[in-house]
Amino acid sequence: MSIAKINDLIVNEKFEHHFQAIYDLHTLTPIGYEALLRTDLFTNPEILFEKASHTNRFFELEMRSIKKALHSFDTINRCTYNNKNILINVFPSNLADPDFLGQLNKILGETTLAANQVMIEINESEIIQNVDYFSTTVYELQEEGYLIAIDDVGKGVSSLQAIVELQPDFVKMDQYFAKHLAKSSRKQEMVKSIVTYCFNTDTKFVLEGIEIMEDLEMAKAIGVSTVQGFLLARPEPLEVIRKYEIDDSEDNGFCSEVNK
């Protein structure tokens, strides 16, 4: 795809977000939703971000995506009393940009969301170049009330170091470890080791990629309390998620307006 088409996508925001629920296994209810960018111009959004990362508009794309996701999710937040989390993926280079926190605070101020409802997932497809500097950036975000998650743990080369150095609020383990978990004693031991670390350091743990009941039952048996995967929920358009949430909540007077 040409630079012109990428620019067109960014400027005219030719993208939307689907939202995938993350479930608490004890209550079998969503604790939050991950915002996943979707566009008709790319079947795989990762290709879009990879191509955009070689342009001077990569940061702008990230911030426009975050703004659109937060504003969309806010229509759910205004209609419920649940105050669930929204998870947004951010590349390390953009997270470390000096303008990131200021722009994020400005976007948040345009919504009814609180900082502690916004979980920033650090994308593992990009290597963290300077862990010390990055740690300071993460600390500043946490001081503002934002939650930090390390995404796809076990997939990237730096994830274990990032867990120790960045002290995230959440650790999300890569879907590789969920696939055939019930049949693999080695995967079970690896998941249990991270679960134990998280428990002892007061860090929340999420296992991604749960697709069959046997793996869900095994995850629960070895101490996993929060999961994400197609078995429980696929990424859905905002309208679908909003209907689920509003149906389960008392109408606060605004819901009828956003559903017109």
Rank of each mutant, 00 (worst) to 15 (best):
M1V: 11
I3T: 11
I6V: 04
N7G: 13
D8G: 06
D8M: 10
V11D: 08
E13S: 06
H17L: 06
H18I: 08
F19H: 01
Q20R: 03
L36N: 05
L41P: 04
L48A: 01
F49M: 05
E50V: 10
E50F: 10
T55S: 07
R57V: 02
F58I: 06
F59Q: 02
E62P: 05
I66P: 00
K68H: 11
K68Y: 08
N77C: 01
Y81W: 12
N82M: 12
N83W: 07
L87G: 11
I88R: 01
I88E: 04
I88D: 02
V90E: 03
V90C: 05
S93G: 06
L95Y: 06
L95E: 01
D99N: 14
L101F: 13
G102V: 03
K106G: 03
M119K: 13
M119L: 15
I122K: 02
Q129I: 08
D132M: 12
Y133Q: 15
V138K: 02
V138I: 05
Y139I: 01
Y139N: 00
Y139P: 00
G145C: 04
Y146S: 02
L147N: 14
I148S: 03
I150K: 00
D152Q: 08
K155Q: 14
V157W: 07
L160S: 09
L160A: 14
Q161I: 15
Q161Y: 13
A162C: 14
E165H: 13
Q175N: 14
F177D: 02
A178C: 10
K179L: 09
H180Y: 15
L181D: 12
K183Y: 13
S185E: 12
M190C: 12
I194N: 05
E208Q: 10
E211I: 10
I212Q: 13
E214I: 13
E217I: 08
A221P: 03
V224E: 08
S225Q: 04
L232V: 07
E236K: 13
P237T: 12
L238S: 02
E239H: 07
V240Y: 09
I241E: 00
I241R: 00
R242A: 12
R242T: 06
E245G: 10
D248W: 08
F254Y: 15
F254K: 14
C255L: 06
V258Y: 15
